[in-house]
């Protein structure tokens, strides 16, 4: 298994657990959708899986080992609000190269126009910014992508575009994908396995 969550427990305060013994595993090349209503802890779980937060108990294993604490993380998270995931004071070129140095061919494939690189985030739309977030997360060392409602704030055309280009790269490089979404219809379109959040316990 590429990415495994074993019996994860987590609560923001002691009295109420958000995640109570959640387990999940996804293999390389597999595309799993995690579907559940809002406020059920999907986002919390994806942040724990990407190593942004530590679970109270339980373990997240990547390739059988815990996630590295330093250095480039092979599990990358793409977030719902691209404008919050990008430094508003940086030109997008800097945002992109903070992660890695994609070549022109890759950018073209991602649908990123060269002139966008010299703009600031406020000069681009949410859909355009999300392309940067996706491109940035698909560095050569990335082996697993967690997409936390990454297309929820976008219109349907942009949603379809973003997923098309994400899946193309994922397929070519045999990446594992966990797509967190509230839409079952979307999940069935993009993934080969659907996990209902309620069933993970």
């Amino acid at each position: 298994m590429l990415l495994e969550a074993k019996n994860i427990r987590f609560g923001y305060n002691k009295s109420k657990l958000v995640l109570d013994g959640v387990s999940l595993s996804v293999d390389a090349g597999e595309r799993v959708a995690l579907v559940g209503p809002s406020g059920c802890g999907k986002s919390t779980l994806s942040q724990i899986l990407a190593g942004y937060m530590k679970p109270d108990s339980g373990a997240v294993l990547f390739d059988g080992k815990p996630l590295p604490k330093r250095g480039y993380c092979p599990v990358q998270l793409i977030y719902q609000h691209p404008e919050k995931a990008i430094n508003p004071r940086w030109k997008l070129r800097d945002t992109l190269t903070e992660a890695w140095n994609p070549n022109a061919e890759f950018l073209d494939e991602m649908g990123i126009a060269p002139e966008w690189l010299d703009r600031y985030p406020t000069e681009l739309s949410g859909g355009e910014l999300q392309r940067f977030c996706v491109a940035r997360a698909l560095g050569p060392q990335t082996r697993f992508v967690i997409a936390d409602e990454m297309s929820t704030m976008l219109d349907v055309i942009t949603q379809a575009q973003i997923w098309e280009l994400t899946l193309k790269t994922a397929e070519r490089r045999n990446l594992g994908i966990l797509a967190v979404t509230h839409s079952l219809e979307l999940a069935e379109r993009i993934c080969n396995r659907v996990a209902l959040f309620g069933d993970l316990r």
Partner: peptide, 13 residues
């Protein structure tokens, strides 16, 4: 607490 700070860390910065 911004998301882009957490992301930078995950890019190994």
């Amino acid at each position: 607490s911004n998301h882009y700070i957490a992301a930078a860390r995950k890019f190994g910065r």
